[in-house]
Design a binder for these strands. Structure first.
Lengths: 220, 220
DNA sequence: TAGATTGTTAATCGATTAACAATC
DNA sequence: TAGATTGTTAATCGATTAACAATC
């Protein structure tokens, strides 16, 4: 599905990446008890053009009303639905190191419907412990666990060297999505969705920006 | 600088984001002792067109040779220079929670020339400890520390509620770049470079992809 | 009704791809 | 020299912006 010929015209990657930003902005507006907003105000707050706001929102449906604008609550909810945030996802975390623990402790994820059910680690010393009330299991137990328990998403917080191998195991257990923090490009069936968080590349991009801005530093 | 009229035509954000990928791929080729590569082979490995590879690389200079292709070592090194990886950056980490510690322990960053000099935390219990041989200081000591010690980059691993306020303090101390893991849009002078790592948005994008792929889950 | 603001079509802009002459 | 492959210009494609008729 997605960009198949099921009526909707395909939506650009860029537009999709803007959706969570709309969602976040609208949630903030809700917090400020703002009831309605025009594309023009939205565009000011998000630093894009009003035209693009209307174009983006119309890709997904007519959420506005001429002469009025958009109802904040309604629009926030609709975008949430588009993003799939009206569903509950069960997530497991592979790797109970600092990164895995950071994700496990992050309150926002739970709040948004991403329920963290378990962590897995190769380190036997971690096994049996709990992190933020979430149990840590041995990697040996992964397949057995997934046979008995549901998991939609797995966050890969393990060294790059093991990521592909673990991804294969997870795909065999019918995982739906991989949130990949390692720096390898995972090779998985296209039924499995992969979202990469490339920290090293992000830091390099920052390095580039600093260099371009003329903040020259020591050669090495 | 950057897109000012200093001779170079401005380079698209998308092309810049591809640079770290080239760099990573070329580093991998080096590891496999591959000496030369054509734009065609590069394009196959990176899943972009050969045309785009040549276009990209030519934005930054003619690194290839007709009839031969690109020398892997040379190209890797040149892209490294463009990214500013031939420099050493000194980085401090604000927030010594799991995320801050994860970054502190990440070996790759040090290896690539990002030297982590200190962590800061409001929690007095953390103060005085060391993480991966890096000292943890009190947030109260931040300004004094930065007067006496150099820091080019600050990684913001603190709750969103405090991010802007800390960013202001860091900018006053002439930080060059902020690596922002909080989910607020930082308002800083444009001499200070900001790179955002938006984990929540990344997870929402994954949610969207899973939903689109038809992996419908429980309503909530 | 008059004013506001959307939804949508058309125009523009920029990025990607194709083509090919230059040259190693 | 012949073959390969770049650098670069031109063509295409897609995304962003502008414009405006529809309509609340």
């Amino acid at each position: 599905m997605g960009d198949t010929d099921d009526g909707k015209k395909k939506i650009s990657e860029a537009a999709i990446r803007r959706l969570p930003r709309y969602y976040r902005f609208l949630t903030e507006l809700q917090g400020r008890n703002i009831e309605r907003i025009s594309s023009k105000e939205l565009s000011r707050g998000m630093e894009i053009t009003a035209s693009q706001v209307r174009q983006d929102l119309n890709h997904f449906g007519g959420f506005g009303q001429q002469g009025y604008g958009y109802n904040v609550d309604y629009l926030q909810n609709e975008i949430g639905k588009i993003l799939g945030l009206n569903q509950t996802y069960t997530m497991i975390i592979i790797g109970a190191g600092n990164l895995g623990r950071a994700i496990c402790n992050h309150q926002n994820f739970n709040r948004r419907g991403f329920h963290i059910a378990a962590l897995f680690d190769i380190n036997r010393e971690m096994t049996g412990k709990q992190i933020n009330a979430t149990p840590v299991y041995s990697m040996d137990y992964l397949e057995e666990y997934l046979q008995e328990n549901r998991a939609d998403i797995a966050a890969l917080c393990i060294p790059s060297a093991h990521a592909q191998e673990v991804a294969v195991r997870l795909c065999a257990c019918k995982i739906k999505g991989l949130w990949n923090f390692s720096s390898v490009e995972l090779d998985v069936p296209k039924t499995v969705q992969v979202e990469n968080v490339r920290l090293t590349e992000s830091l390099m991009t920052l390095s580039f920006a600093i260099k371009e801005a003329g903040g020259d530093l020591d050669e090495r």
